[in-house]
Amino acid sequence: RKLGDGPSHIVFESMHEGTTDVHDREPYLTKTTDGKLLKSSTIFIRNDEGKPVGILGINFDITLMKAFERSLDAFTGTGGTGYTEPEPITKNIGDLLEDLLHECEQFVGKPAALMTKDERIRAIGYLDRRGAFLISKSSERACEFFGISKYSFYSYLNEAKAAADDK
């Protein structure tokens, strides 16, 4: 854009709000006719009575930066897997089980000691889906973690599997 070019849609919308109630516009995106992407800001210049008499428009071409951002995201992204947190690398299988136990607390949203029966069933189902019970003696550690008996553990595991089958 150059000096004297017409205003953007944002300016017209602002002017429509009323001459005394127009507000400066924080950065917003605009696109030129030749396809350049701009980060734009609009600042209204006012006379002594507060009436807008001019506009200062600041436009910054971010086309290359956005292209770079997309390239960088394609390189570093996880392809829409839904994982937003880095997966911890554990040194031994016991640490992996402990990580999974703490993950299930985050999944349910409360510590194991405060979970209701239904929440424990959800947590145990989560652990089962994550493969926690493929680890030797993991059921014993889960019983200890949740403060339940082996009988309750297997009952909860069966309920979690049945609920998963119903879906």
Rank of each mutant, 00 (worst) to 15 (best):
R25K: 12
A112W: 04
L72G: 00
G131P: 13
T19L: 09
S155A: 07
D95M: 09
D61H: 04
D128R: 06
F153M: 05
K2S: 12
S8H: 09
E49A: 14
K51A: 01
I45C: 11
F107Q: 10
E103S: 13
N158V: 06
T42F: 06
G125C: 10
K110V: 09
S152W: 11
K66I: 05
E26P: 06
S14C: 14
H23A: 10
L127W: 01
T42D: 13
L157N: 12
L97I: 03
F146E: 02
D166P: 00
D99R: 11
A67R: 03
K167Y: 13
T32S: 12
S136Q: 08
C143L: 07
N92D: 14
M115F: 05
S149L: 05
A74D: 15
S155F: 09
E105S: 13
Y154I: 12
P88G: 09
F146N: 01
K2Q: 12
Y154K: 03
I135V: 14
H9Q: 12
E140W: 08
T33N: 11
L114D: 15
S40G: 08
L56H: 13
R70S: 04
F107L: 09
L29M: 06
L100P: 00
E105R: 07
K110R: 09
H102G: 04
C104P: 01
I148A: 07
I45R: 14
R25F: 10
F153L: 12
S14Y: 03
D5S: 14
F146H: 02
S136C: 11
L72N: 03
L72A: 15
L157G: 02
F75Q: 12
G4N: 13
L64K: 15
R130Y: 04
K31Y: 11
F145R: 01
E17Y: 00
L157T: 00
H9R: 04
M65N: 06
S41I: 02
M115R: 02
P111K: 14
K110G: 04
V11E: 10
K39A: 12
F68N: 08
D95Y: 07
T42W: 01
R120D: 00
A160C: 06
G131D: 07
A132M: 11
V53R: 02
K167S: 09
S149G: 13
L96F: 08
E49W: 00
